Simulated scan of single mutants.
Amino acid sequence: MPNKTTIIVADDHPMLLKGLCEELISNNYSVIGTAENGAIALELITKLNPDLAILDIEMPLLTGFEVIKKCENKKLKTKYIVLTSHKESRFIFKAKTLNISGYLLKDEPFEEMQKCITSISNNKTYFSSTFDSVFESEVSPEIKKIKFLSPSERTIIRLIAQGSSSNEIAESLLISIRTVQKHRTNILSKLDLASHTDSLTVWAKQHKELILSL
C-alpha cells in the first residue's frame, strides 16, 4: 500500500539524493519533489506544501536550517527531518531551537529513516541516539552554566559572542572597562574556563547559537 505522506527530499550530492529517493519510493513513500540546493527546496516546499521535507544541513544558496526557518515563517504544515553528517553540539542545539521533528545521521541505515517517518506521522519527534547523547553530554551542561550567570553577565557574554571587544561593551553599556573585566573574570569562573586572554571569546563564539537563544 502506498504511504499517503507526501515528501520532498533535498541534498546537494546527486548520488545520495538519488539513492534516498529510490529507497523511499521502493518502500511506497510518496516523493513529490527533489532539490539539489536550498533555494529550490524552499520553492518546492512553499509551492507543494508537503507533509514532510527531508533536508541536508549544508546545501548551496540556503542551508537546511535556513530553509526551515523561512518555511516556518510562512506557517506551513510541513514537518522537517534534518539529514546530516554533523554530530557537533552546535548543530544539534540549532535543531532543537527550530523544533525540527527528526535529526538523522547520513551513515545510519534506512530503517532509521522509516522509524523517523513513522514517529513523525504519529506526531512524535525522532532523533538519532547520537543526537540525544551529544545533547545530554555536551549541550545540556552548557545550558545550565549559562543560566547560572547573572543578567548582567548574560548581557556581556551575548555581546562577546557577537564579536564585541571589552572597549565596545563598556561603551554600549555605559560602564567602565574595569567593570567589564570584572564581569569577564566572574563569567570565566562560573563557566569553569581557563583564565587566559582568549578563552572566553573562543567559548562564546563556539556556543553563539546557544548563548543568543537563552
Score class of each variant (00 low, 15 high):
E72H: 15
E36I: 09
S213T: 13
I160H: 01
G64Q: 11
L98C: 11
T84S: 14
K115Y: 08
I157F: 06
I100G: 07
S176P: 01
F131K: 06
I100N: 07
K94L: 15
L55I: 12
I100F: 09
S119W: 00
K69E: 14
L62N: 01
V9I: 15
K87E: 13
F148H: 14
T179I: 05
M113H: 06
F135K: 05
N28V: 01
K144F: 11
E112D: 06
N3H: 15
K208F: 02
D192S: 15
E153T: 06
E72F: 13
K74C: 08
A170Q: 08
M1E: 09
S150H: 07
K182M: 03
S30C: 10
N99K: 05
L159T: 02
V67Y: 06
Q162M: 14
L24S: 02
L20R: 04
F65H: 04
D132G: 15
Y126A: 08
T97D: 10
C71K: 02
K69Y: 10
L159P: 02
T97N: 10
K145T: 02
K69H: 11
H13R: 01
A35L: 06
L62R: 05
D51Y: 10
K69D: 12
Y126M: 07
I143C: 15
S129N: 13
K208A: 09
K96G: 08
G163F: 03
T78E: 05
I25Y: 00
F148I: 13
D132H: 14
R178T: 14
I68W: 04
A39Y: 09
A53D: 05
L104G: 05
L210R: 02
N186M: 04
F93E: 04
Q181G: 05
Q162P: 00
I156F: 05
K74E: 14
G38M: 05
Q206M: 11
D192F: 09
Q162F: 01
